[in-house]
Amino acid sequence: MFIIKRLFPIIIVLALIVFLTLQSPEDTIRLSYGMQNIFLALFPNASGRWTIDMHWFRTLLHLPLYFLLGGIVSFAVPKFWKAAGICFAVALADETLKIFLPTREFGATDLAFDAIGFLLGIGIVTLCRVIKKKCLKNR
C-alpha cells in the first residue's frame, strides 16, 4: 500500500503529460490560449515574448508541468540523481513520442525546459529534506 501511495501521484502526472502530448492541434491551441489569457489576467501589466508568442508560451508551460513531476518523483525516490534520471527518461520519452505524431515534433528546447522544471522540483524537495534533517538534529 505504501508503494501505491508513492506511485499513484507519479502515474497521474504521467497521464497528464501523455494527455497533453496526444491532444489535437486545435485542443492544444485552445488550451494554450486559455492558459495565456489566465496569466495575462493575473498579470495585466506583463510584457515580454510570452505575452505575444504562443509557441514560446507553450514552451514555458513545460516548466510547471515538469516541476510538478520532479517534486512528486522526488518524494517517491529520495536520491537526487535517481529521481532526475527517471524524470529525464519521461521527458525524453515524451519528446520522442512526438516524432511519431503527425502534428508534433521532437523539441530540444522543450527537453531543456523539461529538465529545468524537474531539476527545480527535485532540488526544492531535496532542500526541504536537508532543512528538515538539520532542524530535527538540532532539537
Rank of each mutant, 00 (worst) to 15 (best):
P78R: 15
F80M: 09
G34Y: 05
G117D: 03
I86E: 08
S74T: 02
L92Q: 02
F80G: 00
L7V: 09
M54W: 10
C87G: 00
Q23E: 13
F75M: 10
I99H: 14
L63Y: 09
T96Q: 05
G34C: 03
I4K: 15
A89V: 01
S47H: 13
T28W: 08
R139K: 15
K79Q: 12
F39K: 08
K79W: 06
I99L: 14
G85Q: 01
A93K: 07
G70R: 00
K134Y: 09
T96P: 04
H62P: 09
K82Y: 11
P44K: 07
V125M: 11
M1R: 09
T21D: 12
G70V: 03
A15K: 00
P44M: 01
A108L: 15
L97E: 02
R104Q: 06
M1H: 12
I17C: 02
K79Y: 07
A84E: 01
A15P: 00
H55F: 12
F39I: 04
V77P: 00
A91D: 07
S32Y: 04
R139N: 15
A108I: 14
F118L: 10
C87E: 01
I38E: 06
F88W: 15
D94G: 00
I3T: 14
S32K: 07
E105Q: 12
S24G: 02
A76H: 05
D53G: 01
V73E: 07
R139V: 15
V73R: 05
L14Y: 07
F75Q: 07
C128N: 09
A112Y: 07
L40F: 11
G121T: 02
E95Q: 12
F113G: 01
I29C: 05
R6Y: 10
E95M: 04
V73T: 05
A112E: 07
K134A: 13
F113T: 07
A83R: 05
K134P: 00
L127P: 11
V130P: 00
I38H: 06
M1K: 10
K5N: 09
D94N: 11
I122F: 04
T51W: 01
V18P: 03
D94K: 01
G34P: 04
K5F: 08
A83M: 03
V130Q: 13
V18D: 07
G71S: 09
F57I: 08
A46H: 06
F8E: 02
L127S: 11
H62S: 08
L69R: 04
V90Y: 08
R129N: 13
K79P: 03
M54G: 03
P102K: 11
H62L: 10
F80H: 05
F2K: 15
I10Y: 02
I99S: 03
L7A: 12
L68D: 06
I4V: 13
V73Y: 10
I11E: 07
I124D: 00
P44R: 06
N37Q: 12
Q23S: 05
A112C: 13
D114R: 11
M1D: 13
Q23F: 04
L119Q: 02
K134G: 04
F75W: 14
M35P: 04
F2V: 15
P25E: 01
I29P: 00
G85D: 00
C128A: 14
T28V: 06
G70E: 01
G107T: 01
G34I: 03
I99M: 14
L65A: 14
A76T: 04
N138R: 15
